[in-house]
């Protein structure tokens, strides 16, 4: 029997597809693959909607892949936020692999798309990301793998933080034990491991040390720099904006912003033209910032004064 290249390719593909034999999810198609598993699009028949299904790569004896995927689903289920993809279902396939079902997000990751063209556009995207991370921090969850390929942007301006596979629950308010419908019972919190992406990973995380919200702050700083840099020549960033990035990227986590909400707040101050916590101001700095913030009024007053002077001279 001879199998053509097309048939061999098809067999290689379908042999790794999930066995969703209960009939709820049909029309399964591969979407992509990541470190922990593969993502498929499928039709949720009873509800008549398209969903995404993430499935762990394989049941590895002694591996924590299953536990991580299960934890990711349960973390996501607790974080209901417009910037975090909602989870609909969690279960086990017939062959033992863990899967969870989530909203199908149509769009591109930041890594796949053109960087924002302007500072304002870059900051808008960043604020949406930082808002979602701040929400997670408020719920004692840290992401630990923030990077452009984990940020999805949709056709209608949605910005979603994806891939919470290495997320850590700080005080374990979310149970990581297996739900009753899942077979395994020997689940425990995954042991701390060095997971993340160089360039976006905080030094303490890379060194395998203690991590916290400030570790995400470091990644947010790297992401903000990445968004502002764009593809072209390096932009000259305003001092206060540079200071915000620098404060995110300080090596010692104790000297960074304590969490993402502090970054969001300081960025809002920058956007409003106010002083930022990242940059102590001198009198000159304050005068320059005041001048920049109120330039229209200053110009109008100056024009009025000049006009008054000219009228006085003419008389």
């Amino acid at each position: 029997m001879f199998l053509s290249n097309a048939i061999v390719g098809h067999l290689r593909d379908v042999a790794t597809w999930p066995d969703l034999a209960d009939g709820r999810y049909t029309d399964v198609r591969p979407l992509g693959s990541g470190g922990m598993g593969r993502v498929f699009a499928a039709l949720d028949e009873p509800l008549g909607r398209e969903v995404a299904i993430k499935i762990s790569h394989a049941p590895v004896l002694g591996s924590d892949l299953d536990a991580r995927l299960r934890q990711e689903a349960r973390v996501l289920a607790q974080l209901e936020h417009p910037g975090i993809v909602p989870v609909h279902d969690l279960g086990l396939l017939g062959d033992g692999r863990v899967f969870y079902v989530m909203k199908l997000v149509r769009g591109q990751t930041l890594a796949q798309s053109q960087p924002p063209a302007t500072e304002s556009a870059a900051l808008s995207v960043f604020e949406r990301v930082a808002d979602a991370v701040a929400f997670a921090h408020a719920h004692e969850v840290i992401h630990l793998d923030l990077k452009p390929s984990n940020i999805m942007t949709g056709a209608f301006g949605e910005v979603l933080v994806m891939d919470w596979g290495v997320a850590k629950i700080l005080s374990s308010p979310i149970s990581t034990s297996a739900p009753s419908e899942l077979r395994r019972t020997s689940l425990s919190s995954p042991a701390p491991k060095v997971a993340g992406t160089p360039g976006f990973m905080a030094p303490e995380q890379a060194a395998g040390g203690a991590v916290g919200p400030a570790s995400d702050v470091y990644a947010l700083g790297a992401l903000l720099f990445w968004l502002l840099r764009g593809d072209g020549p390096p932009r000259r960033l305003p001092r206060r904006l540079r200071a915000i990035i620098t404060m995110c990227l300080v090596t010692d986590p104790a000297h960074r912003y304590p969490d993402a909400s502090a970054v969001v707040a300081d960025l809002a101050r920058y956007r409003a033209g106010d002083a930022v916590h990242a940059l102590p101001e001198t009198v000159v700095d304050r005068a320059v910032r005041f001048g920049a913030k109120h330039i229209t009024i200053i110009v109008l007053i100056a024009a009025y004064l000049v006009m008054r002077a000219l009228v006085a001279l003419w008389r």
Partner: peptide, 19 residues
Amino acid sequence: VTTLTNDLHAARRRFRELA
């Protein structure tokens, strides 16, 4: 169709195991 998709799931799993 549901019978077919169930059969296909079973066959693909069997294919993987036999290979």
